[in-house]
Structure formats: C-alpha cells, structure tokens
Amino acid sequence: MTTITTTIPVQRVAKSRIQETDFNNLEFGKYIADHMLVSDFKDGKWHEPTIVPFADISVSPAMLSLHYGQSIFEGMKAFWMADGNINIFRPHKHSARLNRSLDRMCMPIITEEMFIQSLHALVETDKEWIPKSEGSSLYIRPLVFAFEARLGVKVADHFKFIIMNSPVAAYQPKPYRLKVETKFTRTAEGGTGFAKCAGNYGGAFYPTQIAREEGFDQVLWTDHKEHKYIDEVGMMNVMFVINGKLVTPQLTSAILEGVTRDTILTLAKDMGVQIEERRVSVEEIEKGLKSGEITEAFGAGTAAVVAPIAVIHINGYDHQIPVAGADSFQSKVKAKLHNIRMGLEPDIHGWNHIIRVK
C-alpha cells in the first residue's frame, strides 16, 4: 500500500503550450495539457508520484505491455462549476473500476487515496486548461502499463502510472446509426470485458470499421454464445425506454460497468422512473421498435454522457427511433446531471470532488 506522505512535487513547464491551443475548435484528445503525473511501481511498491512537463518517454521495444497487453486506463472529467470552483466527477467510482481492471490484468492496485490525490494535484496544476464554454470539460486519462523490458511471457515487475489531461468541447454527435453485430464478438463472459484494458478496444476496431463501411456509426454488441442478447453499444453502455421504463442489460463479466451508466440509473430512481437491469434480447428490441413500445434508445458514456440513437439495423432492416425531444428521459437526465456537476442542484450522492480555487 502506498500512502502519499508529502505534497506531490511539481516541476512546471518553462513555457506553456496553452497559447497554441484553439479552444474554439477542440477536437477530442487532440490537445494535451502542459503537465503529466508519473509514478513507478518497482521493488514491490508504488513510489510517490511527481508532476512533470508533458513529454515523450523513452521505452524499450521489449517492454512487456507492447507484447502481452498489460495496459489499462480510465476516462473521466473535470469542470468549472458555476461558483468558480473545479469539480472532478466521481473519482471514487473511477478508482474502484481502475482497481478492478488492475486486478484482472495482474497489475498492482493503486490506493484510492493515491489515485484521488494524484488527480487533484494534476488538475489543480493544469486548471488553466479547463475550457469555460458551455458543456466543455477537461478530459482526464489515467493510464497504467507494464514497463519492464523482457521478451519472456510473464507478469511484469515494473509498471508506470501516468495521468494526462486534455481539454474537450461539448460532445455533440449526430444521433447514432447502429448495426446489431451477430458475427464478431467484443468479449466473452469470463474474459476481460468488464476491465478497461487496451486490448478490448483494439479488438473492436475491425468489426466497427466494417460497420462504418456499410454506413453505420457503431455496432451494437451481442453475447458471444448465441448473439441473441444485447451487451453494449460501441464503447458505451446502452439504455432503452420501453413502455415508460428505463431498461438496460444487466452487468456481466463481458460488460464494462460504466460510471455514467451507474449515474443515470441512480438519477432515474431519484426522478421516480422505474428501472430494469436484465437480459435484453435482440428479438425484444426488434419487436419493441416495430410496435412503438420503445420510445428512446441511447448510449451512456464519459465522452458523450448521453448519445442518442436514431437507427438500429436488425436482420437487414433499419428500425427508426423517434428523435428525443426536451421532454424525453434522456434529455431530462442529461440536464439534471449537468446541473449537479455545475453545482446548480444539490449533490446528494457525494459525487463531486471539489477543488476550491475561490
């Protein structure tokens, strides 16, 4: 166990790159803030982190993570609040998921204290990089990977923990056109689907590329055994409003436990909406779209928060989904979540980690 015993040391950049950043045209992930936090796991323990100027690092071509895939990450956000303070949203939940991923990949756990203090220190250091336009945020990317150089197949003894920040604009995609995937599999129960590890994303590129060539934006993943039950949409959890109830696939070891998913389910309960976490069959979705029982479908994830779905392609047919209006559940829950993050509504669940600058 590593406990941070001192203030995290900061080596500031000689010259900031913030003036080179076009905050009016922020492409997701294009710009990286001035600093990064770095810590090494060596000799059986995590060493105290430091904040240094963001820069390339030197790695060996024999680095184990390049060969055997010991690499996991998280994605989260920080915002300027209405009162001028900074909010890192749900770091405790992200810490728990990070550690589930680390455990599954035989990587050393990072204490919640170390994780949250590291986030706090880096975001505070790079606070000028948090954009101030409506809906924008500072995207935070914690990353852990095997750093040991060796060709033998083994669990590494040396790991690196890095956090970097990137200013991002409000995510405003057009509603998604989805293809139900019945050939390829993102993951399988008993595998690494619940972990946020790099290989899950690399393995999804090929079927997603095929779907895009066919005119779709993403795939709607199904179970690995029969391709009869819905898992996820792209790299997000998926939700449906069916006969006024909020329905989402129940978590399995093949599905990533999204922080936004948990947030929306919690807020739905607060709003008096009935929720169902259960198996959701492709057949049920097809029938519900034909009958009109399904009135909304959307993805839930850190980047988009809520990503409306316009079309679901099943068995050669495009099923249209009504456009979500201001009175839709997804619009209301997105607005409520925004207000909690901004400090405009009470944070009754203790989700906001506040950095006080006022």
Rank of each mutant, 00 (worst) to 15 (best):
M1F: 04
T3Y: 08
T6N: 14
T7L: 14
T7W: 00
T7D: 15
S16N: 13
D22Y: 05
D22T: 05
F23K: 06
L26W: 05
E27K: 15
E27H: 14
L37Y: 05
H47D: 11
P49Y: 08
F54K: 06
D56Q: 11
P61W: 09
M63E: 11
M63F: 04
M63P: 01
Q70W: 04
Q70T: 07
E74H: 08
E74D: 14
M81R: 13
N87I: 08
R90M: 06
H94G: 12
S95W: 04
R97M: 03
N99I: 06
N99S: 05
P108R: 04
P108A: 01
F115A: 02
I116T: 05
Q117W: 04
A121S: 13
T125G: 03
E128C: 05
I130V: 09
P131L: 03
S136H: 04
L138K: 13
F147M: 08
F147L: 13
K154F: 02
V155T: 13
A156S: 14
D157C: 06
F159Y: 15
I162E: 01
I162C: 08
I163F: 08
I163P: 10
V168A: 15
A169C: 09
R177M: 07
L178N: 09
L178D: 06
K179P: 00
K183C: 01
R186M: 09
T187F: 00
E189C: 15
G190M: 10
N200K: 11
G202T: 12
G203I: 06
A204M: 03
F205E: 01
Y206P: 00
Y206Q: 07
P207I: 05
Q209H: 13
F216W: 08
K225Y: 11
Y229E: 14
D231P: 04
V233W: 05
V233K: 07
V241N: 13
V241L: 15
L246G: 05
L251N: 03
T252W: 05
A254E: 10
L256D: 12
E257D: 14
G258T: 07
T263M: 11
T263A: 07
T263D: 02
L267I: 15
D270M: 06
E276D: 13
R279H: 14
V282P: 07
E283I: 15
E286G: 02
K287H: 12
K290W: 01
S291G: 00
I294Y: 02
A300M: 12
V306C: 10
V306M: 08
A307T: 12
A310P: 00
I314K: 01
N315A: 14
P322E: 11
A324I: 00
A326S: 14
K334Y: 06
L337R: 04
G343P: 00
